[in-house]
Amino acid sequence: MTPSAKRVTSSDVARAAGVSRTTVSFVLNNRAEQSIPEATRLRVLEAARRLDYRPHASARALAAGRSDIVLLSIPDLPIGTNISRFVEELASALAEHGLTLVTHLAGANGRSVADVCATVGASAVVGFDPFDEETAEDLRRAGAAVVLPSAVEESPAARPIGLMQARYLIGKGHRNLGVALPGPSGLEPMAQERLRGVADACAEAGIDPPLALDAPLDTEQAALAVDMWIGRSVTAICAFNDDVAIAVLAGARARGLTVPDDLAVIGVDDIPTAGLIHPPLTTIRFGLHEVARRRATAVINGLSGQESGLVAESAATEIVERSSA
């Protein structure tokens, strides 16, 4: 059996460059307060490159006074397009500041987010929802200098999404709305908040409350929901998300209905296929780039000892008008 290769250390780099380990540390950690001759700096960098030196995470953290790990706690929900986009945007924004994003699915393997924080040595922990004070305190004890968002900072805004969908349809002249829910999926709390938003818009317009039905991702089951909506003279549907909206479109097509003439549909998320289906789906798009940048800036500010600057503000949203509504 071939023994594993010995890990290259900063001592190896120092010997190869003919300098002290302290000088290697100053150069590789880019310590601006130390004046290192350019020739020496280049010699150290060349030795590190030649030896394929990789700083050990714990040593790097000790030198910097903190780790470069940011832990993202993802709720135990189906990971759709928006969550994937957000993770990519946040990872990119943090990487610009030399920080590495590690994700953890909340509840996975029964481990708490505080346990994972301690294991990976995260300096900051970011959640989708505000952490309760007990969890936030556990995270701080586990070593997190920054915990975002807190209960008084940025929080989800599910209800305004439903309100936005319904106002759009009502503005198109619809007076009898339906809501397409995702069914059992772990998304029920968010779905109920969006339903309340639609109901608020209906009350605001002086029309009957919406008829809410499950529209699973199955053509025949979605068609059964369409039958009930049509039987109750519903003319427009606020779908929980684009996947559910596409199921409604399939159900309407199975019943020989024309969208939007017989039944208008609006979704949420603007997934890549939303503009490719027939008819192209009217939906709501989130400004996830802005949200990710705000979270990254808040992390950087917090790690620098400043106020996070994160305020109670939802993601920028816009209606993407296509042919389904």
Rank of each mutant, 00 (worst) to 15 (best):
P78R: 06
L101Y: 05
L71I: 04
A106C: 13
E321D: 13
P272Y: 14
I266P: 00
G143V: 11
A325C: 13
R54G: 07
A124L: 06
R175M: 10
E89W: 08
V179H: 09
L177H: 07
G98Q: 10
Y168C: 01
A124G: 10
P280R: 08
E154H: 08
G186Y: 12
A223G: 11
L90Q: 02
A39H: 11
A239L: 00
R54T: 13
T219W: 08
A59K: 06
E318T: 14
V320R: 02
G162A: 12
E290L: 13
S10P: 01
P130M: 13
R15S: 14
A316I: 07
V268T: 09
A296M: 03
S112E: 07
D214G: 08
L99P: 01
A145V: 04
T297Y: 05
T297S: 14
G143W: 09
R293T: 04
S233E: 14
T235E: 09
V198R: 02
I230G: 04
N109L: 10
L71K: 06
I74Q: 03
L94F: 12
R15E: 11
T103K: 11
S304G: 11
N241Q: 09
A264I: 04
E89C: 06
R159C: 10
A145F: 06
A252D: 01
G287Q: 03
L187S: 02
G173K: 10
D218F: 09
D261H: 13
T9P: 02
E220V: 15
A118K: 02
T23D: 03
I69D: 04
A118D: 01
S314K: 05
N241M: 04
A199I: 01
R196L: 08
L42R: 14
F240L: 01
Y168A: 02
A205D: 03
N241S: 05
E318C: 05
F286Q: 07
E46C: 08
A47H: 07
V320H: 03
L28M: 15
M190K: 00
A325M: 04
V125D: 02
G121D: 06
P189F: 09
A274E: 00
G287H: 07
A247Q: 00
H104F: 15
P78H: 12
P37F: 12
G162V: 01
L213F: 11
A296L: 00
T9C: 11
P37K: 15
D138E: 15
R49Y: 05
E307I: 03
A199Q: 06
V120M: 05
V299T: 06
D52A: 15
S123P: 00
A205Y: 02
G309N: 10
Y53I: 05
A166M: 01
S324M: 10
A47S: 14
L257S: 07
D262W: 10
A201Y: 05
P130I: 12
N82P: 00
D132P: 01
L45V: 12
V126K: 03
E96Y: 11
D68F: 08
D262T: 13
L94G: 03
R293N: 05
A292N: 11
T119R: 15
D218R: 08
T9S: 15
T81I: 05
R293Y: 03
D200S: 15
T100D: 13
V8I: 14
Q34L: 07
A114Q: 00
F86A: 00
S155H: 09
